[in-house]
Design a protein around this nucleic acid. Sequence first.
DNA 1: AATTGGTTCTGAACCGTTACGGTCCTTTCA
DNA 2: TGAAAGGACCGTAACGGTTCAGAACCAATT
Lengths: 341, 341
Amino acid sequence: MSNAYNRPDQLSPELRRRVLDTARRLGYPGPDPVARSLRTRKAGAVGLLLTENLSYAFRDPAAIGFLEGLALACEDAGTGLLLVPANPEREDVASVHRAGVDGFVVYSVPDDDPHLAAVLERPVPTVVCDQPDLGTVDRVGIDDRGAMYELAKHLISLGHRRIGVVCMRLARDRNDGFVTADRQHAAHFHVQRNRLSGLAEAFSEAGVDWSQVPVVERFDHNMASGASGAAQVLDRDPQVTALICTSDVLALGALTEAARRGLRVPHDITVTGFDGIRAGEEAGLTTVRQPVMEKGRAAGKLLLDANERSRPRSVNLATELIIGKTSGAPRGGAEERWFGP
Amino acid sequence: MSNAYNRPDQLSPELRRRVLDTARRLGYPGPDPVARSLRTRKAGAVGLLLTENLSYAFRDPAAIGFLEGLALACEDAGTGLLLVPANPEREDVASVHRAGVDGFVVYSVPDDDPHLAAVLERPVPTVVCDQPDLGTVDRVGIDDRGAMYELAKHLISLGHRRIGVVCMRLARDRNDGFVTADRQHAAHFHVQRNRLSGLAEAFSEAGVDWSQVPVVERFDHNMASGASGAAQVLDRDPQVTALICTSDVLALGALTEAARRGLRVPHDITVTGFDGIRAGEEAGLTTVRQPVMEKGRAAGKLLLDANERSRPRSVNLATELIIGKTSGAPRGGAEERWFGP
DNA sequence: AATTGGTTCTGAACCGTTACGGTCCTTTCA
DNA sequence: TGAAAGGACCGTAACGGTTCAGAACCAATT
C-alpha cells in the first residue's frame, strides 16, 4: 500500500495499478500526513516563535524582512514554515507543545519568555535570533552593542553631548515612560539592552553622565510610539540636540514629532534610527543597516542542516553605519552644554 | 501518563507529582505533538497555499495584508499557520500531501494549478480566496469585475477613450508582452480575468473597440514590471490618455515610467491601480480599494468554524473606488480620437 | 532434481498518544 | 453490616502509516 504511493519501483506496475484503482474506488484520500510524520519522525516543517501576536509579524518591516529570508531558506529545503501563535499576554505555552515541527526558530523574544523555555525543552534543534547566546543552541544575530557604539561615536564626533533616547520595550511588563538605570541593566530584550549599553559606553567615554540622559521606553512598536516618545523626551529637556531611537520605525515617528514642533532636521535636531528599513532609507534616515533578510535566511540554513555537531554555532552578521541627512552638527556652540565631571 | 499532563483533575495531586517527577528523571520531553495529532485527529494548524514562492508572501503588500488578517484569525482560534511551499515551477505536489493541517486556505493561484487540485483532494475543509466559485468549498473574494467596471466608467466620464492596460500574469506560462483576446478569455487567474473583462465591458459600451486596446502582461509582479509594461504600451501607442494597471504595484511602476518620459500625471496621462495599498495612497493613486486584511480574516474565520453545513458559503467583500490625483480629464479635445464604428 | 539467486509480495511490529472501560478501594446510606 | 455509589488508577486498543523480515514464486545453474 505504502509502496504503491511512495516506492513504485518496489512492485510491479500491474499490482500498483490495481492497488491505486481500488484505493480510489474506496475513496481513500492518500496517505495521512500526520501518521506518516509519526512513523518517519519528520514533520516537514519548522516552527517560528515570535512572542508578539502572530499578526505582528506582518506589520513590522524588520520582522517581514526576517520572515522573507526564513521563508527563502524553507523554500530551498522544501519544508513548510509554521507560525506558532504565542500570545504574550497569556502564559499559555500549549501552542509550543502542540506544534508538530522538526525544529524551531525563535525571533526576538524576551529572554525570560515562558514560550522560549518551552521551546528549549522540546527535543528538536533550535536557532535563536536576536537573543543572548545560550551556549546550548545555535544563534544568529548582530553586534547590537558595537553597532550602536559606532553610531554614538559618530554623533559625538559631530559634537552632540546632550541627547535623548527612545527605545522599544525592555521587558514583558508595559512601561511607557522614563527608564531607570536598573531597568536598563535588567532589560529582558537582548537587542534593546545591548543597544542601550553601546550608547551608554560611548557617551560615558565622551564625558557624558549617562544617568542624566533621558531614556524613554515604549511598549508598542509603531510610528505613533516614536512620536510620543520623542515628545516626552523633548518635554523633559527641550535642549537635546539629538534623538537616538533604537529602531527606524520609532525614528520615523520622532521625525513627525519634530516636524510638528517646527524643528528642522538636522539643523535644529538630529534624529537617528536602527535597522535600515526601506521607509527609513527613503526618508534619508541616519541609521545602522542590518541585513534582516540575511538573518532570516541564515537562521533557516542553520536549522535545516542541523547535523550532529559538537558545539552549537553562533553567527554574527555584519552591519553598516548609514549616515543620512537626519544627522548633523548641533546648532551653534553657545548653548551647547553637557553633563559631566 | 497522558492524564498527568492534560487532565490534572483525573488523578490525585500526589500521583500526578510522582508521574511528572519520574518523567523528568527519565528525560521524557513531554507528549509528542505528532502522535497526539494522529490520535486526536487535530493538527492545530491551518495551511496556506499560495502558488508563488513562499517568500513572495512577504514581498507583495497585498499578500502581506491578507496574511496579517489570516494570522489574526488564527491567533483568535489559537491555531498555527503553516505556509506550504509550492514552487510554481515544479509540478511537485508532495508538499501539499505532507502538510499536517486541519484545513487549507488557497490564495490567488491559477485555477488549473496542480497544487490546488491536490488540496481539493485532501479530506479537509478548504477556503479559496480570489478564485472562481467552485461550488464545493467556501470562497472569499470581491467583485473584481464590477469594481473595475466602475473604475472604467469613471475614466470614461472623464473623457478617456484611448487607453492602454498593464496586467499581472494571466497564466502559468511566462508571457511578457501583448495579450491576445484569446489569452484574455482563457486567463487562469480569476482575478485578472475578471478585472480585464470589467474593463472590456465598460469601454465596449462606450464605443471603444476593445480588440484594438493594447493590453500588456507581466509575469513578475513588482514596480519594475509596471514601468516596463507602461513603456511597452506607450511605445506602441504614444497617444493613449490613460494607463490602467490591474494592481497598485504595477501602477506605481507606471508612474515612474511616466515621470521618466517627462509626462505629467494627470495632465499628460492618467494612471490608475487596484488594491489600495499604503504606498499607492501616499502617491495619491486613483484606484479601487479592497479590504485585503479583512479578506484574510474572513477566510480564516470561515475555515475555523467549518461545522457541518449543507452548502459551501461564498463571501464577497465590498470595495471602494478611490479617486486620487493621478486621474483627470485627457488633455485637450483636438487630438482626442477613438477607435470604434 | 536439487540448489541457488533474485524478485515480488505479505504480514507483523512499531511510532507515541488518547479514549475507553474495567478493577479496586473508599465512602455513604439504608 | 452490607450494598450501592463514586473516585482513583490502570491496561489495552485503536489512530494510519512505514519498514523490514521472510514467504512465495520463478528462472537459471549445477
